[in-house]
């Protein structure tokens, strides 16, 4: 990769309520026009990392205590969410991602434009990637199915005219069909709009299938990173995220502990 990275997270440490360290020394890079997957189990620190980037931390009484988040060279640690959005990063949160009492069209219309692009043009673009939303535009967002809601959330994130989309748990609670259609849309968005996507996922298959790069988090640290294809074939990922077993299998915990020790100390 010859280009400069868009987003650089360097040795990030986040502390909740001044006492609980959620992530420790997480570093990652996202290059232009790249889809990057951030993987890990519950509580690994994926969402915290994403929130630290998007400025949502202050609301949970958490702070970035060490490390840096820079986007195009601009420091983003402990900023307000709307400032981050204005710089071109747009977050699709895990929960409460749409305004339930507003219609689909209204959900998209409330987003102010960036870089002077007209709302109408952005709307055409969004309906191009999510044609299904056009038929639903008069429906209240609270009445949408999970898949439709996720579609609307990504679409609304796109209305912010971002250079990078941050998506928290794309596939959580959705049917395989819905997930497939969403990932296809994400790839199309990346290819046509040339924007980068940082994808937080529990499902390694979903994420690594479309990602260029991947990072695996465990207990607030990055334990594995690299090319998505390489990760997909990596024995640890195979074993713990894809459920492929090979050879004599011990209990999940033992293996995990053993492998981690081997990686860190050996």
């Amino acid at each position: 990769m010859t280009a400069e990275p868009l987003l650089v997270v360097e040795k990030l440490e986040v502390v909740y309520q001044r006492a609980i360290t959620a992530i420790q020394g997480v570093s990652l890079k996202v290059y232009p026009n790249q889809i990057v997957a951030l993987l890990g189990t519950n509580g690994a620190g994926k969402t915290t990392t994403l929130r630290a980037i998007s400025g949502f931390l202050g609301l949970d009484d958490a702070r970035v205590t060490e490390g840096t988040v820079t986007y195009r060279g601009i420091h983003l640690e402990n900023r307000e969410p709307y400032e981050v959005t204005r710089h071109g990063l747009s977050l699709v949160p895990e929960r409460d991602k749409v305004f339930p009492n507003l219609t689909v069209a209204e959900n998209l219309a409330v987003v102010p434009g960036r870089r002077g692009r007209s709302n109408r043009r952005m709307l055409e673009q969004v309906y191009h990637f999510f044609p299904g939303l056009k038929d639903l535009r008069r429906r209240e967002a609270g009445l949408l199915s999970g898949g439709e809601r996720q579609m609307l959330a990504v679409a609304a994130g796109l209305m912010c005219d971002p250079e990078m989309l941050l998506i928290d748990e794309l596939s959580l609670g959705l049917s395989p069909v819905a997930v497939q259609s969403l990932t296809a849309s994400l790839v199309a968005i990346r290819n046509e709009l040339k924007i980068s996507i940082l994808l937080v996922e529990q499902s390694a298959v979903v994420a690594l299938e479309i990602a260029d790069m991947g990072y695996v988090l465990e207990n607030g640290r990055v334990v594995l990173d690299g090319d998505a294809q390489r990760l997909l074939n990596h024995s640890d990922v195979q074993e713990f995220y894809l459920g492929h077993t090979g050879g004599d299998r011990r209990s999940y915990r033992d293996v995990k502990q053993y492998r981690r020790n081997r990686r860190w100390y050996g």
Binding site: S54, F56, L59, E80, P81, Y82, T85, R86, S90, L91, P93, D96, K97, V98, F99, P100, N101, L102, V110, V111, P112, R114, A156, G157, M159, C160
Partner: peptide, 11 residues
């Protein structure tokens, strides 16, 4: 409805 989400959408 959701001031947080509104702020995040750049409002």
């Amino acid at each position: 409805q959701n001031p947080l989400l509104a702020a995040q959408r750049g409002i």
